[in-house]
Amino acid sequence: MGTGIRRAGQSDRAALVRLLEEAFDDDPVSHWIFPDVDHRHRALGLFLGAFTDIALAEGRVDLMEDGTAMALWLQVPSGRPEEEDDTPARMRALADPDNERVELVGRLTGAIHPHDRAHEYLLMIAVSPEHQGRGRGRALIEPVLERCDREGVPAYLEASSTRSRGLYERLGFIFTGTTVDLPGGPHLWPMWREPRGF
């Protein structure tokens, strides 16, 4: 592939959000949250920017040096949080206050997120449309999974399409058995990966 991976920082934020917008413009979940095309083009960047800010502040963003792909990761500790997570409400307030779907998707995914073991959470991955299907997503994920295997740490994600689910299955993720069903919309497939060798 000929391109390296580096850790992104705050100075990369605008480029990260643009890449997310390009990659998720056709995503089924994006279409469900923002069914109107014009409104989606206005609000999607605000919505995805909130995810970017969370990963930059609390996790890690891996970026291909040529800017064509990125992955947002969070380390999730074991145990349920003592307080209710207000992230979905904050994201709605930031991105699209009148759109309850912005908050609902976060509440539904949060309700089924596993808390019994610490794990790496692939919050989101984005590959520019012209580079999709060329192994960039896999190249971003594999180094983290190799580290998970060395350290005995599981990984978790929610696949938003059958295509991405297939990639994650090839990387060792297994569907947990219960979909996240967005009302009148698409499904998300929660997927868990046990570290190999443990």
Rank of each mutant, 00 (worst) to 15 (best):
S78M: 06
R117K: 14
A126F: 02
E100M: 04
I54T: 13
W32C: 11
L44S: 01
V105Y: 05
M64G: 02
D98M: 12
D38W: 14
L20G: 14
T87A: 05
S160D: 10
I5E: 00
E103D: 06
L44R: 07
L157Y: 00
P114A: 03
L94G: 08
A71H: 04
F24R: 01
L19E: 08
W192Y: 04
M1P: 12
E146Y: 00
G59N: 01
V127Q: 03
D66Y: 03
V61P: 01
F173M: 08
E65T: 08
V102Y: 01
G172D: 10
D66V: 04
L122P: 02
S128F: 02
G49Q: 09
Q75N: 14
R170D: 13
V153A: 00
R193T: 09
P129K: 06
H131F: 12
Y156L: 11
R170N: 15
P190A: 03
L48C: 03
A23K: 02
A57Y: 00
G2V: 13
A155F: 02
R138E: 14
H41F: 04
D36P: 03
D26S: 14
G79Q: 04
R90N: 09
D66N: 11
H119R: 01
L167D: 07
H187W: 00
L108R: 06
D149C: 10
E65V: 02
I5H: 02
D38L: 13
A155C: 05
L104G: 08
R134I: 01
G185Y: 02
T162R: 15
D26H: 07
E103P: 02
R40T: 01
A55N: 09
I33R: 13
A55C: 13
S128V: 00
A55F: 05
L104R: 11
G110M: 05
R147C: 07
P88S: 11
V29M: 12
L19Q: 10
G67R: 04
P81W: 08
E83H: 15
M70S: 15
Q75L: 14
E103S: 07
A23T: 06
L72T: 08
I112F: 00
E22A: 13
M70E: 15
P114K: 02
V61L: 02
I112V: 12
F47H: 04
G184W: 06
A15M: 06
A71S: 11
G79T: 11
T87C: 04
D149S: 08
R165W: 07
F47Q: 03
I174R: 15
L171V: 12
E82C: 07
D96G: 06
R60K: 04
Q10H: 15
G49F: 03
G9D: 11
V76Y: 09
H115A: 08
V102C: 03
L74A: 10
Q132C: 09
P190V: 07
P81T: 05
G166L: 11
L46D: 13
D98R: 14
D98G: 13
E82N: 13
A139S: 12
P195K: 09
